[in-house]
Amino acid sequence: MSTEADLLDFARGPALEAALVILVFGMFWRLVAVLALRRSRDLSEPRVRHAWLWGVRTIFTRMWPRREFRPRILHWEAVSYLFHFALAVVIVGLVPHILLIRDITGLSWPGLPTGVITFAAGVALISLLALLAHRATHPVLRRISNFDDYFSWLLVFAPLLTGLMAYYHLGGPYEDLLAVHMLSAELLLAWLPFSKLAHTVLFLFSRGVTGTIYSRRGAQT
């Protein structure tokens, strides 16, 4: 009824605003804090000129495993790629998502048919489940996983699942499912800067810095 706070209005209003503020605030905090750290001076003679160029190169070369590691990890690397690609299709391909981004940033591009999106969302969900199973059963991976890994997994999984449920009207009225979907995605945005999910931005810098340092010392990166 009209006196109760409408969940969808809350998700589209204050919750969205808060999530965006936390996302931007947190991301700048993390980025500036990392970039402004003191770096030790490397006193050795540089083995290559313009080591930073090699750092940039590393960002791309590290996108695929080196030959020596391939037999061991290539299949899981492929699943991971499948997930990232499918997730990207869902995020930047669905028209409602584009409209939200346009509303905030003014940027816009053509969308994809919903059939393509639901297929990609299904692929992303299944690959996420496979990756979770891998994490939970692999002896080494299991030991180095902590709360951050599992909670981040859940926060990526939830918007995908609730989004599909909303599209197919499964488990409740559409406006409620849409509200839950938006709230779960907003939780993801707010959590992102403070978790391992910050790799969406930080991976560029960590790879670049690693590449620069090692190539300066003459190591292959």
Partner: peptide, 20 residues
Amino acid sequence: VLGGAALGGAVVGVGAAALA
């Protein structure tokens, strides 16, 4: 609002870096 959030985050980030 978002520019302010970015500025605030940067200030906190500088503080965190100084502490580190």
